[in-house]
Design a protein around this nucleic acid. Sequence first.
DNA 1: GCCATAATTGTAATCGATTACATTTTTTTG
DNA 2: CAAAAAAATGTAATCGATTACAATTATGGC
Lengths: 329, 329
Amino acid sequence: MANIQEVAKKAGVSVATVSRVLNNHSSVSTRTRLRVESAIKELNYEPSMLGRNLRNSESRLLLVLIPSIANPFYTEIINGIQNTALSHQYNILLCETDSNPKRENIFFNMVKNKLADGIISMDPAVNKQKLTELADNHSIILCSEYDEEGSIPYVSIDSELAAYHAVKHLIQLGNKKIALINSDEKFLYARQRRQGYERALKEYGLPIREEWIYHTTQLDFQDGVHAMRMLLRLEEKPSAVFAVSDTLAIGALKEIKAIGLRVPHDIAVVGFDNIGFSNMTNPSLTTISQPMYKMGSTAATMLIHHIQNRKVESTILDHELIIRESTMG
Amino acid sequence: MANIQEVAKKAGVSVATVSRVLNNHSSVSTRTRLRVESAIKELNYEPSMLGRNLRNSESRLLLVLIPSIANPFYTEIINGIQNTALSHQYNILLCETDSNPKRENIFFNMVKNKLADGIISMDPAVNKQKLTELADNHSIILCSEYDEEGSIPYVSIDSELAAYHAVKHLIQLGNKKIALINSDEKFLYARQRRQGYERALKEYGLPIREEWIYHTTQLDFQDGVHAMRMLLRLEEKPSAVFAVSDTLAIGALKEIKAIGLRVPHDIAVVGFDNIGFSNMTNPSLTTISQPMYKMGSTAATMLIHHIQNRKVESTILDHELIIRESTMG
DNA sequence: GCCATAATTGTAATCGATTACATTTTTTTG
DNA sequence: CAAAAAAATGTAATCGATTACAATTATGGC
């Protein structure tokens, strides 16, 4: 690949002039501009991002941190991020962290090293301390999962309220024995959703029974299967289940069927996220829909504003209860 | 962030010595090494990738091109790529192309500009010509989808044979009216899978009926739903369906149920890919399992070898038929 | 203690761009 | 037509690292 020197030589001008042509400076005469442009074409020259970034301290690249691409929850969010970023001439790079601090570190370093201009983190297990440190000097936005006390701007939904709505829906259908399949409560969203679950139960005078609250380690289908298996082994079985993610809920559906019970007749199920699959299950899944595309585009806009040193404020978006077959016979 | 100059000044040495410490050169005395190391710690210094890359023409970053992260097919492949890359001190960046040439171009440029060392492309709609041009001077591997005549090394499976196996399985269960839900035959895998389908039918003396072959534009669940709906409207309905992707097959399952028919009793269904969800559907899905992790790790190994100027040869991996409820009562 | 040799360390060029400032060329004006 | 002002272009420093080569210091042999 040719470099700017060769273009300059071929066009019979200095590198400065070539650079001016590249960056559309007005102070180049039409005649030289044309000469330079034809030299660029002839040599098939494309400017090196590396050299440019080094000089400009800007890469126009945004990093999106997700724990795993296996989780379909992120799909629409990423779409939102991507489209918004592109419309501002930014590109995004997806970084799978596996919630592994070492990998995260690599991506943090990319920002420190100006290989990327900012980060949208959706990893609930991210190292908050390191992230906060990084946020002192760099642009970072949290999406979906956030830190209540932290100083990093975020966009998310009101998980507590959403869970409350989900459980209230189950109660209003006549369920009195409602189980919760939660993930690890080290995650904020898990704590919030549990609170919403408990608030709904309390409000309707229903008891909170610890044995009806099951915690999974991850969010895979298999975790849902296993959680449901445990709940169905209880002396007093629940008549409804609220799972904090659709993947868990779908695993639960599978296990309920496997054991010969019917949904929603014997056990009603509500999920959370409204992933694409939730409408493909049998029965289709009642769930809480997060405004995922909006969340992504908001996060991207916030990040870009932050990079431009504009003020950004954390945002809470609305959710919606999507009622399908798993709660309505 | 401190730079190498400041470290040098603080340690009372030259930048060359600092660089030597950073790169573990043996010619640094223990005493100066310690002085430099403590200066690095004190200043919280981390070397700039940008400066380093510019000098070394190496980024140790690999690009992975996928059309969409929504397709769960890529999940395990990416795992394989990621782990292999990491074990060779390479990091990967996921690039969603949306099969959009403009976006692809951005990522191609990253390689040209030394922002990344190579590409693994899994986008079947990738611009073959541009890719081939790029492959002249850069390291590129095709994964899963490839070009028969092209010169770019690939790793894939024998789609024709796999489809043949899938359809043969249906035939051996007694099915004589077998439909094919295929995707657009502009894709090589679609053409190959159709060939396998036809070979199996021919071998057993069954007719190939065009109305039983449905082409979808994409691979979403909805496309499967729609395809199945069309097939079920036919005068003479098929008794079995082979879909070239699990997502299509799952959509088909949904539609069969919706119309009141039973799987596999009325219609047997076979998918392709063995995505995580295929075991969560009701009934669970018989499918062709691609060795996805292996495919990913092979692709990564090939790419790294190519970057190191070692010889790489295209590879075809084995598939496996996974028999589940959708074909076995 | 002196010289040869080996072990350290430093100097300065380099990678490929951008840009402040200096210089040259062109245009305007009286 | 000369001087002043404006426009166009060039020179060289800069971003942050690496490394060939040069220079210095340490070590060993006699």
